[in-house]
Design a protein around this nucleic acid. Structure first.
Length: 570
RNA sequence: GCGCCCAUAGCUCAACUGGAUAGAGCGUCUGACUACGGAUCAGAAGGUUGGGGGUUCAACUCCUCCUGGGCGUACCA
């Protein structure tokens, strides 16, 4: 579709003198197909030409001739509407997808460039709730999307394995730690004593001093505390690994915050050299009042470090290590101010590359009308959700597809797919309302719906009995849905670009649903012997098979980018 | 208090970043299975886009005020 846009932009540019890319960004899709395939609104020319937009449209239309790309051109009021040459579009889309296969929609725009993405980043000793899923799934999708565009991507799991909380944890474990329970279910046990110490602190402020002291000892290398911390950390990592394996999520490294502890002094030294550090209320801070922000805390009054200290070190380390083209932090919206502060401090340190750092924030997951949070204790566990979606899938398979090969494997793929899709079906910044009924509803727009459509296409291809024809006469594809499908397929690369540009995997989910909708209508609407995909006309059948094969490839590709598998049968 | 974000069909979300008649799914009602897979499809009903004012050829989108919610706001991450 991009080719057609720039073709039109080039023509209009030579006629009006307007910048080609300016025109390109004005070109839009008409609200309905019978108005045309692409449109140019003439309002922006009205001022410079001092004429009514509608008049300009009429005049320009008279000076554009249809050509091999454009079948005809019409005007409607101030809009010039372009009708794309259908046969050409269908033929080229089929050929392009068949040629590129799984690489369709990709590019090499990222070759030689590295993108660093920080995502997931759960806290050691805290349960992996469905809230952590968002960062994990969005980040993993972005990683695949950027890879598809030729970037080299560094996926980093910035585990919360350092900080004041470990003082609490160590103190609590020394009080109530149970070796057997720690081995059996480390996260559950650690979280339990963490909650307990938290409550105790609220009742007795003296305890807070004691827990702070434990963290201080840890940061100063105390042997006993370091040993405890190491065990907590190792055990938690093993637990998280199980979840990542289930979700099919991978990282290039999982250094955790602790990795940057020995890199903090250098950062603090340069802050000092730049006279950016100020003592304030016994703490060490970077004053940001000039920029309308509260100060960035670098060192607490008890002389221990903070997350900002470690994040500064991490950012600088990553720039040196990877020389990234972009760095993306997939972190919740609650930390927006914090990232503004972090980026500002990096800027004040003279790091121009801070302009390449982005906070890809995401909204909360609500349970009822409350935000889900570990603190409030109203969280839903990821394990439970996945277990239930798998169970539900099994029930449906038993009902609808008895005798399906590898039912366990398929149930797993569909169940996990449902969970991932449910998370990526919304724009990042919207708060998601978690609802069991909705989660377990595989009808309508959902992950299983997309997978089902893919399986359906696979089924027709199987029934066709031969390999997808190498050549076909696509001129035989005359049904409106066939053109509509080709048009959607031609937009795939634009969608991927947009998803990458805006850090929004949602655009891909939304696109896949649109594609499924058109295919399913097409599939269901034409039942006569001549109009079906597998029809009495061998030529038309070959052409239709070629088209739906292309649709199948795109569905598979899109699902893969989202991190969802595409079973052939389900 | 100050700052940022949100408010769209009964519910959950879209709307190409200022463009043509605001669209989907679920729910409700009505239809399509001796099937190229019904985990599907077709149709109907459902809206003063929270409210007022403004900016302009054009506002769900931008500015302003109001109402109602959320988050953040120095020693948590």
């Amino acid at each position: 579709m991009r080719k057609y846009k720039s073709h039109i932009a080039r023509k209009l540019s030579s006629l009006t003198g307007m910048d080609e890319s300016d025109i390109g960004s004005l070109i839009e899709t008409p609200p309905s197909d019978d108005l045309g395939d692409l449109a140019f609104p003439c309002f922006s020319l009205a001022k410079s030409l001092k004429k009514a937009p509608a008049a300009i449209a009429g005049e320009l239309k008279g000076r554009i001739e249809p050509d091999e790309f454009l079948e005809r051109i019409e005007t409607k009021g101030p809009y010039i509407n372009f009708f794309i040459d259908k046969k050409r579009l269908i033929a080229s889309v089929i050929a392009e997808i068949a040629g590129a296969e799984e690489n369709y929609g990709g590019s090499n725009e990222g070759s030689g460039k590295t993108i660093v993405i920080e995502y997931s980043s759960p806290n050691i000793a805290k349960p992996f709730g469905i809230g952590h899923l968002r960062s994990t799934v969005i980040g993993a999708a972005l990683k695949r999307i950027y890879s598809h565009l030729g970037y080299s991507v560094q996926g980093i799991n910035h585990l919360g394995d350092w900080g004041t909380q470990f003082g609490k944890l160590i103190y609590a474990f020394k009080q109530w730690g149970d070796e057997a329970r720690l081995k059996e279910n480390p996260i559950e046990h650690l979280y339990e004593i963490y909650v307990k110490i938290h409550q105790w602190e609220e009742e007795d402020p003296g305890i807070a001093d004691a827990t702070r002291e434990e963290f201080k000892k840890l940061e100063n290398g105390d042997e006993e505390n370091t040993a405890l911390w190491e065990r907590f950390s190792d055990l938690s990592r093993v637990e998280f690994e199980k979840i990542y394996k289930m979700l099919g999520v991978e990282f290039d490294s999982s250094p955790g915050e602790s990795f940057y502890v020995d890199k903090m002094p250098a950062v603090e030294k340069s802050l000092m050299d730049l006279s950016l550090l100020v003592k304030s209320k016994d703490a060490t801070v970077v004053d940001l009042e000039k920029y309308g922000m509260p100060p960035a805390l670098i060192r607490k009054s008890d002389d221990t470090s903070l997350y900002a200290t470690r994040d500064l070190a991490a950012a600088i380390y990553r720039k040196n290590e990877f020389d990234f083209h972009k760095m993306i932090y997939v972190v919740g919206v609650a930390q927006t101010l914090y990232f503004n502060q972090l980026f500002k401090v990096l800027e004040l340190m003279g790091n121009k590359w801070v302009a390449d750092c982005h906070h890809a924030s995401f909204g909360w997951i609500k349970l009822g009308d409350e935000m889900m949070s570990t603190r409030k204790g109203n969280i839903v566990f990821l394990d439970d959700v996945i277990a239930k979606t798998i169970e539900k899938t099994k029930a449906i398979i038993e009902e609808n597809s008895p005798g399906l090969p590898e039912p366990e494997k398929v149930a797993f793929e569909v169940g996990v797919g449902a969970v991932i899709f449910a998370d990526l079906a919304y724009r990042r910044d919207t708060d998601i309302s978690f609802d069991w009924a909705k989660m377990l509803d595989f009808r309508g727009y959902s992950g299983p719906y997309v997978q089902y459509t893919h399986a359906r296409i696979s089924s027709v291809l199987r029934k066709y009995g031969k390999g997808v024809p190498a050549n076909c006469d696509s001129d035989l594809l005359k049904l409106p849905e066939e053109f509509a499908m080709a048009k959607i397929l031609s937009r795939y690369s634009d969608i991927i670009d947009k998803a990458a540009r805006e850090f929004e995997p949602f655009h891909i989910s939304s696109y896949l649903l649109e594609l499924c909708g058109v295919f399913n209508t097409y599939y269901q609407k034409y039942k006569s012997a001549e109009d079906r995909i597998l029809s009495t006309d061998p030529g038309a059948t070959d052409a239709r098979i070629s088209l739906i094969n292309a649709a199948g490839i795109v569905l598979r590709s899109g699902l893969r980018l989202l991190g969802i598998s595409a079973p052939e049968m389900m």
